[in-house]
Design a protein around this nucleic acid. Structure first.
Length: 253
DNA sequence: ATGGTAGCGCTGCTA
């Protein structure tokens, strides 16, 4: 099973690029984040035309998560398992079962600046996703807005202590790994500078000033079946790219 | 380089 995650930064602006990418990467499951669409505007027909079932959880202007699958898409749940979501809750979590694997697509809050109320909310959200995964989860992937370690940052000195790399954020991510999830990309590759996100500003992509913040975490038995992983930097090039590249992992299941 | 660009949507917020 080929599973991918991609923060598309507006599916409305990116639909053509996503369709193109599905055509050549051919994932079995694609989790997307930041669709910035309401459920009513989600282009499910475009995906069904390509052979994908789809589910979407969106609020319209910001956030929004989706799962596409051509290997089954069952038991779709929007939001956390411990609370029914209403429209006041940011759309950052969607779960479904694909080919027997319980998958969650997540868009972890950005946190803005260390110590802000948004930062505290990010840490609380990460604690909550751990509880959610303990209830129901084989695999969680998406934009975590955390670079797991200094290999995953273009210049650790330049961002030291800032959001995405602060000790508390990394500790919150480590709690997921301590519970039993595995960073599948890191299981396969030790190299640094394999980034998945580059700021649009200041030519950061072309300078390769990025971070690896888009992660595919799987429980150990599943992670042991990961045989290949890739950040598709080609999808960050050319006309109208997202600021994130897709990350894909192949599982021998 | 406390700047810079992109998306949404129409004013400034979010990232």
């Amino acid at each position: 099973m080929r599973l991918a995650t991609w923060n598309v930064n507006s599916l409305k602006a990116r639909l053509g690029r996503v369709e193109e990418w599905l055509g050549y990467a051919v994932p079995d499951v694609l989790c997307m984040q930041e669709t910035k669409l309401s459920d009513a505007d989600f282009p499910s027909m475009a995906f069904s035309a390509l052979g994908y079932e789809s589910a979407h959880h969106g609020e319209g202007r910001w956030n929004g998560v989706a799962i596409l699958s051509r290997v089954g898409l069952d038991d779709v749940v929007a939001g956390f398992s411990d609370q029914v979501e209403d429209e006041s809750v940011e759309a950052r979590l969607l779960s479904a079962t694909c080919a027997g694997v319980r998958v969650s697509s997540v868009y972890v809050p950005n946190g803005r600046s260390v110590g802000s109320e948004f930062y505290e909310a990010k840490l609380a959200w990460l604690e909550r996703i751990l509880r959610h995964l303990k209830d129901t989860g084989d695999l969680v992937c998406g934009d975590f807005n955390i670079a797991p370690d200094d290999r995953d940052v273009w210049d650790p000195k330049a961002v030291h202590g800032a959001t995405h790399v602060s000790p508390a954020e990394r500790q919150a991510l480590a709690a997921l790994l301590d519970w039993g999830l595995v960073d599948t990309f890191r299981e396969l590759y030790d190299e640094g500078r394999l980034f998945s996100w580059w700021d649009y500003r200041a030519g950061d992509f072309h300078q390769h000033r990025g971070m690896r913040i888009d992660l595919v975490l799987a429980t150990r038995p599943l992670a042991e079946r990961a045989v290949f992983a890739l950040v598709d930097r080609f999808a960050r090039k050319g006309k109208l790219p997202s600021d994130h590249a897709p990350v894909l992992v192949d599982f021998e299941i």
